[in-house]
């Protein structure tokens, strides 16, 4: 994770809220007794969500204690998964896919649009702490490239204009509709259906 411009004092203490504690218990209960360590990834995710999108040391140690795991084992997991952030991020974590299919479909232009709209480069956070822009590897939406993920939402079939619009809307506190920005349904063919457009060949028609 790279440098950020928001100065955040890492919290000394971390504790689940009562609601999250209940959620954690339910997550742990999914696994057989004595195998509570299996819940480490969901619990780290829960802690990250509670702490504004990143995991401070205190949270890692808290999860380790909760699961009765050595801290190093939780630390290994937290450093392995790139979706777990070990440094503060903005309220909106913009993860732009630049892997081959998205890149072929013009992710360079999307990156430029992001940088222009947000005024920051890759790996940076806006001064108001609203956005962090990062580059990620394939997010599995290749049929809808180029695409980006903002927190939990996928925005697909982007062009520079729609990208800027999404970011502006987020800045204004709205939540733009996720999914394809070109108006197609999921990953259906972009120019419209190419098969089964008529009833030729069906029974009763000859």
């Amino acid at each position: 994770m790279s440098a950020n411009t928001v100065a955040v004092e890492p919290p000394e203490q971390f504790k689940f809220t009562p609601a999250n504690r209940k959620r954690a218990k339910a997550l742990i209960a999914k696994y057989p007794a004595g195998r509570q360590a299996s819940a480490v990834v969901p619990l780290l995710d829960l802690a990250q969500r509670q702490n504004g999108g990143w995991l401070p040391r205190a949270a890692i140690e808290y999860v380790a204690a909760l699961l009765e795991m050595p801290v190093i084992r939780v630390w290994e997991v937290a450093t392995f998964y790139t979706m777990l952030n070990l440094k503060p991020v903005g309220r909106h974590l913009v993860q732009l896919c630049t892997t081959t299919p998205c890149w072929l479909m013009g992710s360079d232009a999307i990156l430029e649009a992001c940088e222009k709209t947000l005024g920051i480069g890759l790996g940076q956070t806006t001064e108001d702490g609203a956005f962090t822009l990062v580059e990620v590897e394939c997010l599995g939406a290749c049929a809808n490239g180029p695409m980006m993920q903002v927190n939990d939402d996928y925005y697909e079939d982007l062009d520079p204009k729609s990208t800027a619009a999404i970011l502006e809307a987020l800045r204004a506190g709205e939540r733009p509709a996720p999914g394809s920005q070109a108006g197609r349904q999921a990953s259906a063919p972009a120019p419209g259906p190419t098969t089964l457009t008529g009833l030729e060949g069906t029974a009763g028609e000859s």
Partner: peptide, 9 residues
């Protein structure tokens, strides 16, 4: 002593 580990990937 579970204190050594491999971090990062």
């Amino acid at each position: 002593v579970e204190e050594l580990g491999a971090v990062g990937r």
